[in-house]
Structures are given as structure tokens and as C-alpha cells.
Design a protein around this nucleic acid. Structure first.
Length: 573
RNA sequence: CGGGGCGUAGCGCAGCCUGGUAGCGCGUCCGGUUCGGGACCGGAAAGUCGUAGGUUCAAAUCCUAUCGCCCCGACCA
């Protein structure tokens, strides 16, 4: 393929609205263009990458026994009303109506649509199990799309749904998909980790996320350094504190101290000369609209999903400043457990603390030497803090958590009968009895995977694609295209590589060397061959890995063979 | 949805405070020189100043409303 004939509009300057590496380089490299917030066009190079990812996904799913289908992008409201999600899904579901006034939505996910298909046409245990998948554009009207392809509103996703006669078979398929996912992301050339995850709006009881490890990832995960346990911090378990009950004799007398305008943990601890570990912060939440107080060590974070689960409420939000003032009868920043008139839930770690600092429910006042039991009694003691690097592993006795940042590119769920039950998706078993199908579902963000690869692979100059998802395997740069010998050698190299089954881009543009090499760095094709008159006089061309600094001089006659050998070797990993 | 920022040529920006003929860099087109890591000279095309209303002799500039985009947070398969 000739560069001069492809639409690759590279940009020298960083687009004003891009902040993260993948967004900046996808736009600068001429891969994508924004059309509206969270909505992008894919240019030829961008589409090639997306197709590469999609092909790997398709091959591995087919190999795992799944069957490809294509479900509609427009879905009638009735289906969503049946599952109950027409009401539940909220403003993220983009709704519209047709000319007759009939309600529709654009599919953000397709559980309803596949269940509709399967319940009509699959009636016998003989047809089970079955796993149907599609690769298709999804739309979720995100409140805040951001970071280019990382979090768009319109994005390409592979979603698979499996149907089984019982839970055991569904769990077998869950593992089958888990293994397929591991192969997919390995083949994509990504460093990733599968972690235990929450199930969110999709529902279900068992789930793993596949996280591409990158410092810029939105998700925090912890992984034990000894056993295999790894989880999203949203639900990572914590080892119960083992310290025995504090000795009452060590309690000091509680006293009130003046802390003028010291609101934050940082301000208070600095003012009082104590550490954040010696302070317990008290937060006010509205749990199903009723105020509750939550206490946790000063340097810890409340884990809202855990808290929500522990309190068994539907809605949990941090109270507004006004609500906090009403509950504590004090300005925000001085809340404490002593004399508080609402239910008080404390983190388990609070039980191990003695003589700590809390707010006094009075402006500019804190208490020191507060002790649980003596000064206040909690409604309940719960595990409500977010796990962090350095915590002891909950699953094994020796391990400690390491912290990572990840980009969630895939997730597998065990759904059970969450959808088959309300939508009546059943089959006849061998005994002739009607039973509900047991389901699983499995998603991969195809466009997000492409972006994640860039977050994991780039430098200051541009993208460094893994071979498997690069738009081309090799870029041949003709340094002086007007020099007949150079042009001819470059063209021959291109033709030989292409004949060898290598995807090769020939930069035949009449541009200065600097422009071409900078563009090559920017678009990030893994293997580059520079053909220039200087080295050509010595019968050589220059081969360079995008990821490496050094340039190798090889004989012109050997160049095609060498590159053609390296590409499959690199694809194998 | 709360907080903040920005909308001026394809891209990046200045001009706005203090109203008076719309500018710079990059890119694009033409001619020439040059050309192994983002060249140089000469010429050219290209802008409803986001939109609507208002104030004014006069609005990119002041006022009001509105739309869009980005960031932080909330939220989030």
C-alpha cells in the first residue's frame, strides 16, 4: 500500500481537546477524527487497527465454540420493558421513536435482544449449550465522555451471550470464555491481568474484568504478591484486623481542642501534629435518602459499593454540605461520632485505634483521645474501606497487595437467570420439564482495546503498536523517492514483502526525510525499513524496530527475507 | 448532574480588558532553490469571529440568552 494514496492526515500540533496519550496520538496520527462528544470517525488507518482487534476476537471466539450473529442496533422498547431495564437504565440509554411514535432505544448492550432470539428458536436441551456473539457498535449516552476512544459514547464492542441447562454448565463456559479472553489479549500483545470484579448494572453474581495494565488506567486494582488473588479495589476483600480489643487502661481523657478553620484531614493532622492514621474521619451519606454517618481512618477511602451492599440500600450518595450541617449541627469539616444523632457505621479498622482525633460536631473544634466504646457506640462495625497497596491479602496468609492501574478491556459475567426469568427464556429438559436457561455474558471493548494498546505502548514521538494490531506490519520509507535507484529498491522491497504475506506500507511521498521519519514514529508501525541513497550505495538498507533505538544495516537482497521472518516471529510473541 | 475553562481560516493561537477596515504560526495551492530527522525565498486561496437577541453612529470586543467542546468531580458495561 502506498502512503501517498492513503488518507493519513497527520498533525504536527497536539489537538486542543486531547489530553491522554492514546487520544493525542490517534488524532495526530490520522487514525480518528472527532465528530461529536464521545463520537469518532475511523479513518483508514484507524479502521485497520479496529479490524485487527476484531479479527483476533473473532478467531478466538470461533475457536472457543461461539457463533457469530448480528443483532439490531435499534431495539424496540417492549423488549427492554420486559426485562425491566427500560425504567432502570436511566439517561445513558439513548431513546427515540419512529414515525409512528413507537419507542426504541439504541442498544448499549444486547441481553434483551439475544434472549428474544433464543427463547423463540431454542426450545430443547438438545440445542444447548449455545454461545452467540456479535461485534457491533454500541451507544451509551455517557454523562461525561472523555479521553478519546477510552470512554466514548459510541464504541465498538464484542458481546457474547451463552445459554445453558444448568449452573454447572454455565460456569464451565465462563471458564471457557475466560481462557479465550486470556488468549485474545495475549495475542493482541498486551500486558493485562484478570481480576475479580463487581457486576454493576448488568447484574449477575460472578465476574472477572480483564485489565490492561497502564499507569493512566481509570481502574485501581490490587493483586496479591503470593497467591493468585487479584481484584478491582471496588470489591477487593480485606483481611479482618487481628488486634485484640484495646486495653481500657491505655485510654487518655478525651478533650476538645480549638482547630480554627481546619477542615481537611491534612489541615487537622498538620495543625495537631498527628498522622492521618491517628485520626478518624466521619462522613455523612444519604442511604435511600436517610442520613447515616460513616467513620473510617483518616488516610483511608470509603468503598461505596461495599458500603451500599452492607447497608442493603438502593441508593447511596454523599450528603450535600447543607445536609452535613443539619446532621452535625456544625460546618463541614468538623463531623465526629460523639453525640451524633444518626446511625453510625464504622470501619473495622476503627476498632483497632486508640486515643484518636475526630471532629467535635462544633465549628473549629475537634476532639483528641477519642475511644470507641467509651466515647461513642457505633450502630455496626463493617468492612467498608477500599483496599490499598500494602494491605495483607484476604485469601492467603503470607501475601501483601500490590497496587496497579488498569484499563478495563473485557469482562465476563455469570448471569444465572437474571434475564431468562423475567423474559421467559426456557427449554424442555430430558424429562420433558420446563426449565429456565442459565446464562452468562461476555464483553470486549474493541475500540477501547486499541486505545489501551497505545496507553501501554507509546513514547514522546508517537505510538508503538504491538505487531498483532498494528495497521501495517512493516513501513518501507523511501528517503529520496525522486532518486530512481532508491525508488526502485523501495518499491521492490515493498513488493517482495507483500508477496511474502507481510502487510507493508510504502512511504513514497515526495517529502523531506525528517517529515517522513517523524510521521513513521508517530503512526507507530512496528518495523521500519529506510531505503536511502547513502546506504544503498553500500548495497544496504536500514531496518529498525519502532520500540528500539538502534538501526541495523542489512543487505538489500536480505531485507525482505529478514523482515518477513521477523513479522510472524513477533506475532507469535 | 455540580464546579471550572474554552469557542476567531483545515490545525494551534493572538486580538476582547479600553468598541472603529480580522491577525500570527503551521498546513494547503502555484513558482523557484534545497532536501538522510518536522528546509528556505516569492506569490496565492481560505474566516457566518459558535448561534440568537440587545446596547451603540459602529460589536470578535459590552449585555442577555442559548448551543457546542474540554477538564475535575458525581456517575458508569
Amino acid at each position: 500500500m502506498r502512503y501517498s494514496q492513503l488518507l493519513i492526515p497527520t498533525l504536527k500540533e497536539v489537538p486542543a481537546d486531547a489530553q491522554v496519550a492514546s487520544h493525542i496520538f490517534l488524532v495526530r496520527g490520522g487514525y480518528i477524527r472527532q465528530v461529536a462528544a464521545g463520537i469518532y470517525s475511523f479513518l483508514p488507518m484507524g479502521l485497520r487497527v479496529v479490524n485487527k482487534v476484531a479479527s483476533i476476537v473473532r478467531e478466538e471466539l470461533n475457536r472457543a465454540g461461539a457463533q457469530e450473529v448480528l443483532l439490531p442496533i435499534s431495539l424496540p422498547a417492549e423488549l427492554w420493558q420486559e426485562s425491566g431495564r427500560w425504567q432502570k437504565y436511566g439517561p445513558e440509554l439513548l431513546r427515540f421513536h419512529d414515525r409512528k411514535g413507537k419507542d426504541f432505544c439504541i442498544g448499549p448492550t444486547h441481553e434483551e435482544a439475544v434472549v428474544e432470539l433464543v427463547r423463540r428458536d431454542v426450545r430443547s436441551y438438545r440445542a444447548l449449550p449455545i454461545n452467540l456473539y456479535q461485534i457491533q457498535t454500541k451507544f451509551r449516552d455517557e454523562a461525561r465522555p472523555r479521553a478519546g476512544l477510552m470512554r466514548g459514547r459510541e464504541f465498538m464492542m464484542k458481546d457474547a451471550y451463552s445459554f445453558h441447562v444448568d449452573e454447572a454448565d454455565a460456569m464451565r463456559e465462563y471458564q471457557n470464555m475466560y481462557d479465550a479472553y486470556a488468549r485474545i489479549f495475549t495475542r493482541c500483545g498486551l500486558k493485562f491481568r484478570a481480576v475479580e470484579a463487581g457486576t454493576g448494572a448488568i447484574g449477575g453474581s460472578h465476574s472477572h474484568e480483564f485489565q490492561v495494565l497502564a499507569a493512566s488506567g481509570e481502574d485501581a486494582i490490587v493483586a496479591c504478591d503470593r497467591c493468585g488473588y487479584a481484584a478491582n479495589v471496588e470489591l477487593a476483600e480485606l483481611r479482618p484486623a487481628t488486634a485484640e480489643a484495646p486495653d481500657l487502661a491505655t485510654f487518655h481523657a478525651r478533650s476538645k481542642v480549638h482547630t480554627p478553620a481546619k477542615h481537611t484531614v491534612e489541615e487537622v493532622t498538620e495543625f495537631l501534629g498527628v498522622t492521618a492514621q491517628q485520626l478518624a474521619k466521619t462522613l455523612v451519606y444519604l442511604a435511600d435518602a436517610k442520613p447515616v454517618a460513616v467513620m473510617i481512618r483518616g488516610d483511608r477511602d470509603v468503598n461505596e459499593p461495599k458500603l451500599k451492599a452492607a447497608l442493603e440500600v438502593e441508593e447511596l450518595v454523599l450528603a450535600s454540605d447543607k445536609a452535613v450541617e443539619e446532621v452535625t449541627k456544625a460546618p463541614v469539616g468538623f463531623a465526629g461520632p460523639v453525640g451524633l444523632g444518626v446511625p453510625l457505621f464504622v470501619d473495622r479498622e476503627i476498632e483497632t485505634m486508640v486515643n484518636f482525633v475526630t471532629g467535635a460536631n462544633e465549628g473549629d473544634q475537634h476532639f483528641v483521645n477519642v475511644n470507641l466504646g467509651r466515647d461513642f457506640r457505633p450502630t455496626a462495625v463493617l468492612d467498608i474501606r477500599t483496599a490499598a497497596a500494602g494491605d495483607r491479602c484476604a485469601r492467603c496468609d503470607e501475601g501483601t497487595y500490590q497496587g496497579y492501574r488498569g484499563i478495563e478491556v473485557g469482562q465476563v459475567f455469570y448471569l444465572g437467570t437474571k434475564y431468562s426469568q423475567p423474559m421467559g427464556c426456557s427449554f424442555l429438559d430430558e424429562a420433558g420439564a420446563t426449565k429456565l436457561m442459565v446464562m452468562g455474558c461476555y464483553g470486549i471493548g474493541v475500540t477501547r482495546t486499541a486505545a489501551a494498546a497505545i496507553e501501554q505502548g507509546h513514547d514522546d514521538a508517537g505510538i508503538i503498536w504491538p505487531m498483532a494490531i498494528a495497521p501495517f506490519h512493516v513501513e518501507v520509507v523511501s528517503l529520496q523517492p525522486r532518486d530512481a535507484a532508491v525508488a526502485e529498491a523501495a518499491q521492490r522491497l515493498h513488493d517482495e514483502l507483500q508477496a511474502a504475506g507481510v502487510e507493508v506500507l510504502l512511504d513514497d511521498r515526495d517529502e523531506r526525510v525528517g517529515v517522513k521519519l517523524n510521521d513513521a514514529d508517530l503512526i507507530g508501525i512496528p518495523l521500519r525499513v529506510a531505503v536511502g541513497k547513502r546506504s544503498l550505495q553500500a548495497g544496504e538498507v536500514e531496518v529498525k524496530w519502532r520500540r528500539a533505538a538502534e538501526v541495523e544495516k542489512v543487505k538489500v537482497a536480505d531485507a525482505a527475507r529478514i523482515c518477513a521472518e521477523r513479522v510472524p516471529a513477533e506475532l507469535r510473541g
